[in-house]
Design a protein around this nucleic acid. Structure first.
Lengths: 208, 208
DNA sequence: GACCATACCAGACATATGTCTGGTAATCAA
DNA sequence: TTGATTACCAGACATATGTCTGGTATGGTC
């Protein structure tokens, strides 16, 4: 390879690597070498080392195909399972047999499996702008706090335990689930008949 | 590892691999083995071989970290630009200088560039459950129809042309933009001072 | 029981891939 | 000129990683 002006080849290498990574296919050093017609792997490695030093790439030393785009360079995406009806006790099974999946953005340090989605039934939260047919995204790992809108499993008279969306209110000695619609009652479930699945972090509504 | 029912472990492996691939980080066989507590790499390889045979994964033989999601196996994802304030006539510039990006699902035969997102200002659509701070996703290529919620650019008294969300009503000889809040007036813009950017296809609301 | 399929294990092996050491040549500044 | 910096080369080396051969155990079917 003839010598090129400083930085020029490196920019081309960066774009090549970035495009491969965006396509979900990390290149090896030798693949990059071949693409640019270099004869030495070390040439590539030197360029990549500069890109890492500049903060344009991240590297996982020793790992095969270990170069990555730095966190924050591009929003991370993932798929969250859409849970349908939740039968008694079968929340984990419901997660395992999703009705579908919706794409979500994933914060750094979190994983796609931290989240699931639920289709809203009933009109108990219309006051908060949450309508039947909407989809809510729940963070399973976040601790639900008083005042937040949460998804909870409450044992009712029926055997079916249905997941519901309500506003959580924690008092000194009890858990309350407040609807946002005067036509619905506040739920005050016993501690052992109620399980908070997590706070709602996002609402989605599709228009046809 | 104790023996598990047929297919169950394999499904878990599939989801693990898929989530890693969606995160742009292909796992090695040994990473999968360690994650599930297996003691033999071959256990993983056998499961992956079945997944490939079922068409749930693709494989590039011999390549390190060579397992991939088959094209079309997963809903296509993309990033839509979030448009901030739209100054007069500057819609295309606003698209070019987005405030951020949000992940969206892309139907087959469509492209990510067909969509953009807009942050909602004002309370004119609270009756439809659309509040200030919400984000709406707009399909630029779809023809807006009467009755749909759309985003429109309307020239007002101010020089700033602001994009607004309204319900579109097409009468025999005029365009009307209806708010969904009695406190706001119906807009009847002249044809040349109004531009419909497209119908709202999705609503997003984030909870902190 | 004989047979088959499935889940899992053990360890050797080959190769894909990152790492390192040392070298040549061009360019630029002091 | 000298020295520093940069682009690139050559090849050995270590390790990360896929591949293979063979084995154990469980559950089902004929």
């Amino acid at each position: 390879m003839p010598r090129t002006p400083p930085g020029q080849t490196r920019d081309r290498i960066y774009r090549f690597v970035r495009d491969r990574l965006l396509g979900g296919d990390a290149p090896s050093l030798r693949e990059i070498r071949d693409h640019f017609g270099f004869r030495a792997v070390e040439t590539v490695r030197a360029h990549l080392a500069v890109l890492v030093a500049e903060g344009r790439l991240d590297r996982q030393p020793g790992k095969a195909r270990g170069y990555r785009l730095p966190a924050g360079a591009v929003p991370r995406q993932g798929l969250a399972p859409i849970v349908g009806t939740v039968a008694a006790g079968g929340f984990e099974e419901a997660i395992g047999n999703p009705e579908g999946e919706i794409p979500i953005g994933i914060p750094p340090s979190r994983s796609a499996s931290d989240y699931f989605a639920l289709r809203v039934r009933g009109e108990s939260m219309t006051g908060a702008g949450i309508f039947p047919g909407d989809t809510v995204v729940i963070d399973r790992r976040a601790r639900p706090r008083s005042g937040q809108i949460v998804v909870a499993l409450v044992e009712g008279e029926v055997l079916e335990t249905e997941a519901t969306v309500k506003r959580l209110v924690l008092t000194a000695d009890a858990v309350e689930l407040h609807p946002e619609n005067p036509a619905y009652p506040v739920l005050r479930p016993a501690a052992d008949s109620c399980r908070i699945l997590g706070p709602v972090v996002e609402l989605r509504r599709r228009f046809r």
